[in-house]
Structure formats: structure tokens, C-alpha cells
Design a binder for these strands. Structure first.
Length: 542
DNA sequence: ATAGGGTTAG
């Protein structure tokens, strides 16, 4: 079988060299020896192909390697795969794997190979390589888990992590540094606590990377108290630890605390960096602290000599725009020393939507070259906010013409160790009947309390979660109903959503928190909302 | 050979 595979690859690249079967002689060579000095040239050649994405030279080199009988040398195989993967020829890379895996004994080379597949962002193929590996050490597991996290496959990463725990390989600090960001993305507090406890039980030596990751994880999982207490207890000798804390406070809407932490850096002799300021600016932005935001934006350059990057300008424009200072925001954009990019224009576009200015929204749109679904949605919503239905219709047609579809809104609630996901108007959950019954009851009660759905949003055909059923069955409402169904009175309900919570749902959640006298914590795409007694921690400013 | 914090909009 392997011979057949070898011939297939060979025939693509041999270019007339057909004297002997390349792999026959290859297998008998002693691969535990280092590559001879003469043959090191192949490695350098492949390295060059990789850097210049030169697939032609790569295949030619491959041919030569086979001809010289080095077709299965672990170090060359790793280089070949890495070069192919880099040239976006994963199929060729995988063929090499298929042919030589059983001969290759050098685990370091195998791990390098796996890494090539992971870096090429095809986690399915990487997993196939992982499964094929005759031997796996801690690096193997760590790479694969990290690969899943990098590719947004967080649950898969956690699943692999639990598999690792039952294997004969013991997790190390690298494992946790990979798995914690995955947990942060999922937003599961129970998982975060479990990982934390595991690290203690396994006596993982914590360094600043792990501390920063842990503070970040707790913050993003809604455990801001735990994040704060860790921050208080540890040695805070690296800026990333401070960044995690500042950003954590920012996403929970504790802008003043974030600023307080920032001020404390001075006393502990930690110099803020570009990321610190992103955290501080976003804290100000989401709490409407315009004056403070301006101050810190200027401070980064004047005192710390940090030149603001696109992200900083984006955040600053967001801060001004959110507060309704559209003209000042525009002036900032036009006087930027660097070319404004889509980040900045999208922030501005969003402000135009918030403050119902379709005219300037069009200006922003004109500066965004490759429009994404969200851009159309924003523009259309801006028109709708001014009752310009014709224009909104035009945008809708543009979307259709360009084959752009809206990004699906998904909300989830963790229950029984599983993530129960809901789409808008979803009826696929096994407990759909009781969920809709709970939701229906709540809607009735809300109506009785005088709750009026936002007409503006109902009218919008391009609303992000538009459905025949209208906004009553938005994903976050379904997730909430499920949470109410599953938990006892008085307990806090935590919900996550991949988009921003919609205006109508935000009002409705406030009301429900008062009606049921329960705390509801919603993590949307960029921040937390804590509803209690009819009020939200964001102060309806988001 | 594997690791952290930020990254517009909806």
C-alpha cells in the first residue's frame, strides 16, 4: 500500500526518473543517523521553498530526495510536509504522511509534522495525522489541543484534553496555557474552576503566562471576582497580567476599576504597552467615559511614546461615536497619521447606526472595500432607524445580489455538562415544547407589565435574527427560557451569545430579571450584561 | 517540537 502511494507521488514529480523504486532502497537506510552533511542541502532547499511558497522547486526537490534514497528520512519528511503545507498543498503533505508514517520513529520530527498541519489551519487533517501517530508525547497532545483552540474548535479542544487525562501522558504548563483560552471562549465558569483545580492538584508551576491566561479565563467566564482575587494574590511582575485584569474589568463594565488598576501600574513599576491601552480605551468606551478616554488616548503617546495603531484609533472612534460625537470622530479619522482602515470605518459606521445618521453611514461604507454581512446589516439598520424603508430595501437587494448572508446568531446555556445552543426561532431542542411554554408565559407576563416590543426592530427585514416569528423568539430568549426551566428560583442564570444582544432582548431581560427576581448574566460578543432588579450593569449604554 | 494578554461591525 505504501509503495503504491509512493509511486503516485513519485509519478507526479519524477519527471522521467524511473530507474528504481525510490522507497525500496529508502526503507533500509539507518534513519537514526543524522542526515549526512551533503544532504543537509535538501533541508535548506525546502526551507527556501517554504519561505517563498515555491511549490515547483519543492516538488523537484522531493524528486531528488527520493532519488537519493532519502524519501523517508524523518527530518526531510518533516521539511517536505512543512514546505507543502506552507504552499497550501495539504493533499501532497498528507500523501507524504501516508507513505512514511510507519518508518518514522523520531517523535520530534513527527511533532513537527503535526505542527505543520495545525499551522495550515485544517484541524480535521491535523487530527488525522494525530490519530495516525504511533507514539504521542506531551508536545503532541499540546499541539493538537492548541490547534483546535486556534481553529475555534473549543469543545473539541476540551474533549481532547479530557482524553489526555485518561492517557498515559501528563499535562504540563503548555497544556493549560492552550486549554485555558479555549475555555475562555466557551465562557464556562464550571470548566474554568475545574481547570484551575486541576492545575493545583497537578502541582503545575504557574508563571506569568498562566496567570494572565487564568485571569482572562475567569473574566471571560463571568468569574470576575475570582479573576480579581487571583490578581490580588499573585506576583504581578508582567504587563500581560495587568492587561488581562484591565480587560477583564472592562468587559464587565467596571471602567473605573479598570482605570484604577491602570493607575496602580505606576506604583508597581510596570510599563503599560499598546494592549494595555486597548483595554483602558474599551473600558472608557463602554461606559461613556469620553473625557477619560481622550486623556488616555493622548497619554499613550505623550507619556509612553506608544504610537496609536489602527485598533487604538478604532477604539477611540468607537468611544466618541458611541457618545454621539460623530463630528469629532470623523475629524479623528481624517487627521490620522496612518491610513484609516476598515477597523476605524466600521467603528464609525456603527456609531452612525447608533445615532441614526444614514448619510454619514454611507460615507463610512464607501471606505470599506470588502463589505461583510455585518456592514450591510449596520447600514440597513441605519436606514430603518430613519424610516427610510426604500433604502433599507436596496441594501437588502445588494446583499442578495452579492450572495451575502447574515451571520447566524447563536446563544447557549450550559447545563448538565453540555452546551445547549439555540438559534432564532429554533425548534430543534428536545425540550422545545416546555421551553416555548415558559417563554410564552413570560411574554404574556411582560405584556401585562406594559412591555412593548421595539417596533423599529420588528419592521426591519434585515434585522440580524429576523425570522417570520419576529423578535419574540430570538436565540437569547430561548436560551433564557431553557435556563429558567432547568434552574431553581433565585439562582443566577448565565447565557452566552456570539453576537451582540439586541435592543429588544436587552429591555426584555431587564424586565424578566425584575419579574422573576433573578440575576441574569449575559455575555455577548464583546461584554457582559448583568441584569438585576430591572436594571442592567451596562446602564443601557453599550 | 508545543504556551499568555488586545483585534471593528452585526
Amino acid at each position: 500500500m505504501q509503495r503504491h502511494g509512493a509511486r503516485r507521488i513519485g509519478s507526479q514529480i519524477e519527471m522521467g526518473v524511473k530507474r528504481s523504486h525510490p522507497f525500496c532502497s529508502a526503507t533500509s537506510l539507518p534513519w537514526h543517523h543524522e542526515l549526512s552533511k551533503d544532504h543537509q542541502i535538501f533541508r535548506h532547499l525546502l526551507e527556501a521553498c517554504k519561505l517563498s511558497s515555491d511549490i515547483r522547486t519543492a516538488t523537484e526537490t522531493h524528486t531528488r530526495i527520493i532519488r537519493f534514497g532519502y524519501g523517508t528520512h524523518p527530518s526531510l519528511v518533516a521539511s517536505l510536509i512543512s514546505a507543502y503545507a506552507h504552499c497550501d498543498r495539504l493533499n501532497l503533505a498528507y500523501k507524504v504522511v501516508d507513505q512514511v508514517f510507519n518508518w518514522t520513529v523520531n517523535l520530534v520530527a513527527l511533532n513537527k509534522t503535526l505542527h505543520s498541519f495545525i499551522k495550515s489551519r485544517d484541524s480535521e487533517l491535523a487530527r488525522k495525522v494525530f490519530d495516525k501517530m504511533p507514539d504521542r508525547d506531551v508536545v503532541t497532545w499540546n499541539s493538537m489541543i492548541g490547534g483546535y483552540v486556534d481553529n475555534g474548535r473549543f469543545e473539541e479542544a476540551l474533549r481532547l484534553f479530557t482524553m489526555m487525562l485518561t492517557s498515559n501522558v501528563v499535562p504540563d504548563k503548555f497544556t493549560f496555557a492552550s486549554v485555558m483560552p479555549g475555555c475562555a471562549k466557551l465562557g464556562s465558569l464550571p470548566l474554568a474552576q475545574w481547570l484551575h483545580q486541576l492545575m493545583i492538584d497537578m502541582r503545575i508551576e504557574v508563571n506569568y503566562i498562566l496567570v494572565a491566561a487564568m485571569i482572562d479565563m475567569y473574566s471571560k467566564c463571568g468569574g470576575i471576582e475570582a479573576a480579581k482575587s487571583i490578581f490580588e494574590r499573585v506576583q504581578r511582575d508582567d504587563v500581560s497580567i495587568w492587561n488581562s485584569m484591565i480587560n477583564g474589568l472592562a468587559i464587565h463594565g467596571f471602567a473605573l476599576d479598570a482605570i484604577a488598576v491602570f493607575s496602580k501600574m505606576d506604583f508597581e513599576d510596570i510599563t503599560p504597552d499598546a494592549i494595555t491601552f486597548l483595554g483602558v480605551l474599551s473600558a472608557c468606551s463602554h461606559s461613556g467615559l469620553v473625557k477619560e478616554g481622550r486623556h488616555y488616548f493622548n497619554l499613550m503617546k505623550s507619556r509612553y511614546s506608544i504610537e496609536p495603531q489602527h485598533e487604538h484609533y478604532g477604539s477611540f472612534v468607537d468611544l466618541l461615536g458611541r457618545a454621539g460625537l460623530l463630528e469629532e470622530a470623523y475629524a479623528v479619522i481624517t487627521s490620522m497619521p496612518i491610513e484609516p482602515d476598515v477597523i476605524v470605518w466600521r467603528a464609525y459606521l456603527s456609531a452612525c447606526r447608533t445615532h441614526k445618521n444614514p448619510k454619514m453611514g454611507e460615507v463610512a461604507i464607501a471606505h470599506i472595500s470588502r463589505l461583510r454581512s455585518g456592514d450591510y446589516v449596520l447600514l440597513s439598520n441605519t436606514y430603518c432607524s430613519q424610516q427610510q424603508w426604500d433604502n433599507a430595501q436596496r441594501v437588502r437587494e445588494m446583499m442578495k445580489k452579492h450572495g451575502v448572508s447574515k451571520k447566524k446568531g447563536i446563544s447557549w446555556f450550559e447545563w448538565g455538562g453540555r452546551f445547549h445552543r439555540f438559534k432564532s426561532g429554533d425548534r430543534s431542542h428536545p425540550e422545545t415544547e416546555p421551553i416555548y411554554k415558559v417563554l410564552g408565559g413570560l411574554i404574556e407576563r411582560a405584556k401585562a407589565e406594559g412591555f412593548v416590543p421595539k417596533r423599529e426592530l420588528v419592521m426591519m427585514d434585515v434585522s440580524e435574527e429576523e425570522k417570520e416569528e419576529n423578535l419574540c423568539y430570538h436565540s437569547e430568549k430561548l436560551a433564557l427560557a431553557f435556563g429558567i426551566l432547568k434552574t431553581g428560583p433565585g439562582t443566577e442564570i448565565r447565557i452566552s451569545k456570539n453576537l451582540r444582544i439586541c435592543d429588544d432582548c436587552h429591555n426584555w431581560f431587564s424586565l424578566v430579571s425584575r419579574m422573576l427576581n433573578r440575576v441574569i448574566l449575559v455575555r455577548d460578543r464583546i461584554r457582559f450584561h448583568r441584569f438585576e432588579g430591572g436594571l442592567c450593569s451596562c446602564g443601557d449604554y453599550w
